[in-house]
Structure formats: structure tokens, C-alpha cells
């Protein structure tokens, strides 16, 4: 899809073997002799590639395999099958040149040293990543300005609020100017203002450095603000890879029709057109199956005294919710050919 893929994944899989035991003493004793295990396909043969400078949203419900994939790409996990290269490196070989060019930010993990002031962790990272002094100073200044860190730098990490800590985490993870960023829930637990600031920062960083970003988030606002392209996985399988706007086309089985009437309803029943979602003075919102949209709009225009009519895709949040509420079987991984065309 991309001219210059920075991340290339082919049939990447990860199977975890987990121990299983029933409750109770007898089961506990039995497990001493014979352990029951079960294989869990956390990531199931997914393939995609990401080009230089792209910001890709990686979506899926809890347990879909997002974090497992990011951990494989950052070298923390060995895959069970398939291959992956990032910046030409195989991540799990943990080549130091690779580690110096990427970063993984996990919302709930901290790379800031708990007991020391934030600026001291920055200094430590400067040494570990061998950042030359002439590069370090401007980067710290820039990050301090963009993320408004000035009042926080001299405080020990343990005295920071969650949002403050997250900002400092992100800054600490970017001091070495990585060209690939894996951001796992970078805005989790933050208030709306802070979420917005971090979003703006990611866009800014991407534009200025041309870094490639894969981002997971439960907040659709993050994804809508940052990512043109999204990859959706569910139960470890890839469901969708394409533009965010195409997601509704592909998965939403209905459209939202908003009608403004000239003279009110005159007591006409609306159930015949579709599911009534909202109804206020002279304005109705209906949910109509996608296949019937053309016919129903025709009938609405013919039957009612319509002043204005708009047909829209449902909000992206509803689409995602719809996708995740499906079992994976009817939504098999799409044909790569099809992805190419999307």
C-alpha cells in the first residue's frame, strides 16, 4: 500500500499457552501431577504494512491482541509464527540500533524513575540513549514547551498526578527522537483537556519529524483526530485495514437519516420508514438499514412535506461498537486484495 514501508508484518501470530485449573482443593492437587493447559491465539496471522510518516490507529476491544502486537513490534515478545520487520530490523532480536530508533509508550507502565525528579530521569535517558548534549538541550526545551512541563521537571515522579506523569512519560520516551512510535493508550485516564493536548502533540511530532506512529486507544476521539487509517483486530484476527471513513461503509449495516419537515408530522406513523431515534419539533432522526436507504428516502420525500433531508453514516463510535459486538466468524479477515483497493 505504501511506497516506503517502515513496518512490514506477514502472517504474524502469537499463541500463549495458559494453565487451566478448576476451583477447589482436589483440582489443586490434581494440577500438581498433571497440568492442564490451553492455547490462546492472541494474534492470529495478521499482515499489514505501515509507510514512513503514517499515523495508524490500531483498534480492537480488550483482549483483541493489540498490545501483544505492539509488544512483538517493540521486541518484548517473540512471535509464534510469521515475520515482522521494523526499520529493517527484526524487533525481537532487540538490536541496539533498533532500540535507539523506536519507542513504546504504555499508559500504565512507567519508565520514569519513581523517586527522582523528572529532569533526572531525562538526564539518565540522555546517557542511556547517548544523546549528544547539543541535541538534548533543544529537544528538552521543545518538549517542555509543547507539553507544558516546566513546573513538573523538578518534582519527583511520585508527586505527579496521572496526567502530569503521562506527559512526562511521553517526553522521556521521545528524548532520543525515535522514528517509530508505538503508543499504547497514551491518553488513558486523562481529562479531556489533557487528551486534546497530547493528541495535538502527537500530530505535531509526526509532522515535524516524519515519525511513523501506531496508536491504540479506547477513545475514538483520539483516533478520529489523529488517524486517517485504522487497522481493526478482533480475537487476534485482522478485520479491517483502510481509511477511517471507510469503516462505516464496510461495517455499518445502517444509515442515519435526518429529516426536517415543513409542517410537522400530522400524526403519521414513522415506524414504517425505520427505527425512530430522535424526534423533536419538526425534526426526526431515523435509523434505516443500508440496503433500504434509497427506497426509504424516496418514500419519505414522497409521503412527507420535507424541507431538508440528510443521509449520514452513523457515528464512528457506534460502528466500532457494532463491529466488536459481532462474533469473529461472519467477519473473517478481509482479502488482502480487497484491502489494497480500500
Amino acid at each position: 500500500m505504501e511506497q516506503n514501508p517502515v513496518i512490514q508484518i506477514e502472517e504474524l501470530s502469537k499463541v500463549y499457552t495458559v494453565n487451566e485449573r478448576e476451583a477447589g482443593l482436589v483440582a489443586a492437587m490434581r494440577s500438581l501431577v498433571k497440568r492442564k493447559t490451553r492455547d490462546v491465539n492472541a494474534v492470529d496471522a495478521i499482515s499489514f504494512s505501515v509507510g514512513e510518516g503514517e499515523i495508524v490507529g490500531f483498534l480492537g476491544p480488550n483482549g483483541a491482541g493489540k498490545t501483544t502486537t505492539l509488544k512483538m513490534l517493540s521486541g518484548l515478545l517473540h512471535p509464534t509464527g510469521g515475520s515482522a520487520t521494523v526499520l529493517g530490523f527484526r524487533p525481537w532480536e532487540r538490536n541496539r540500533d533498533y532500540l535507539r530508533r523506536m519507542t513504546l509508550v504504555m499508559g500504565q507502565r512507567n519508565q520514569l524513575v519513581w523517586d527522582i525528579p523528572v529532569i533526572d530521569t531525562f538526564e539518565l535517558n540522555r546517557a542511556v540513549y547517548r544523546i549528544p548534549e547539543e541535541q538534548y538541550r533543544p529537544v528538552v526545551e521543545e518538549l517542555t514547551e509543547l507539553l507544558e512541563l516546566e513546573p513538573l521537571l523538578r518534582k519527583p515522579t511520585r508527586n505527579l498526578s496521572l496526567g502530569e506523569r503521562m506527559k512526562c512519560e511521553i517526553a522521556a520516551a521521545l528524548l532520543h527522537r525515535p522514528s517509530v512510535l508505538f503508543l499504547d493508550e497514551p491518553t488513558i485516564g486523562l481529562d479531556v483537556t489533557m487528551q486534546r493536548r497530547i493528541r495535538r502533540f502527537i500530530t505535531d511530532y509526526n509532522q515535524r519529524t516524519g515519525a511513523t506512529v501506531i496508536l491504540t486507544s479506547h477513545y475514538m476521539a483520539d483516533v478520529e483526530a489523529l488517524c486517517k487509517r485504522v487497522i481493526v483486530i478482533h480475537h487476534g484476527k485482522l478485520l479491517y485495514d483502510g481509511e477511517l471513513t471507510g469503516l462505516a461503509d464496510r461495517f455499518a449495516p445502517f444509515k442515519t437519516v435526518e429529516v426536517k419537515l415543513q409542517n410537522g408530522l400530522d400524526g403519521r406513523p414513522l415506524a414504517q420508514y425505520g427505527e425512530l431515534m430522535a424526534h423533536s419539533e419538526g425534526r426526526i432522526t431515523l435509523r434505516i438499514p443500508k440496503v433500504d436507504t434509497a427506497a426509504v428516502t424516496g418514500r419519505l420525500l414522497a409521503d412527507l412535506d420535507v424541507a431538508d433531508l440528510t443521509v449520514q453514516d452513523p457515528p464512528i463510535e457506534d460502528v466500532i461498537e457494532h463491529v466488536f459486538s459481532q462474533s469473529p466468524s461472519p467477519l473473517d479477515a478481509p482479502d488482502p486484495q480487497k484491502i489494497q483497493s480500500e
Binding site: L76, R94, L99, V128
Partner: peptide
């Protein structure tokens, strides 16, 4: 889970 953070460092 602190070991993951150590593993991400280039040293």
C-alpha cells in the same frame, strides 16, 4: 512488570 521497561533500553 518493570523488566519490560529495562528491555526496551538499548543497553
Amino acid at each position: 512488570g518493570l523488566f519490560s521497561v529495562m528491555l526496551l533500553k538499548p543497553i
